[in-house]
Amino acid sequence: MELINIQPTEQTPKVVLNSVKRFFEIEGESRPENAHDFFFPIVNELKNYMKSVDNEFHKDIFSEFPFSAHFKLMYFNSSSAKFISDLLFVFKKYYDKGLKLRVYWYYNDGDEDQRDVGEDLSEMVAFPFTFVMVKG
C-alpha cells in the first residue's frame, strides 16, 4: 500500500512510501517554495508508519526482508536539507530500536560533491548509508 505517493514537479521530488514493499523513495530535485509545507506531512507520515511497525511481528518480517530507503536526490536546496536530515533521523531512531532497515544514497558517476553530502549526513545522523553510483 502506498502511504505516500507524490509525483515530481520542476521544484519538488517524487516521494513514495510503500508499506507492502517496505520502501521509501525520494527522487529528483528539491527546492520547494515552502520546504516546511512540502516536507512536514511527509516526515509525519513516515513517523506514523515507523511507529506502526515498531513491534516484534514487524521486526521478524524486517529481519528477513529489510525496509529500504532510497535517496536519489540530484539536487536539494538548503531549506530542504533540514527536512532530509529529519527523515534520516526517523530512520535512525527505529534502526536503533532494532528494525532492520537500510539507507541507500545515490550519486552520479563523477559527482563527488553529492557523495560527500551523503557522507556528511551519514556521519551527522550516525547511521551507515550504502552509496550507489549511477552511471551515465
Binding site: 520546504a35 516546511h36 536546496n77 538548503s78 536539507a81 533540514k82 536530515s85 556521519e123 551527522m124
Partner: peptide
C-alpha cells in the same frame, strides 16, 4: 554546517539560514 543543520529552524520566510 552540520551543527547548523541539526539546529536549523525554518524562518517565516522559509529559509533555514544555511545558504
Amino acid at each position: 554546517h552540520k551543527k547548523k543543520l541539526l539546529a536549523a529552524e525554518i524562518s517565516e520566510k522559509g529559509g533555514a539560514g544555511l545558504g
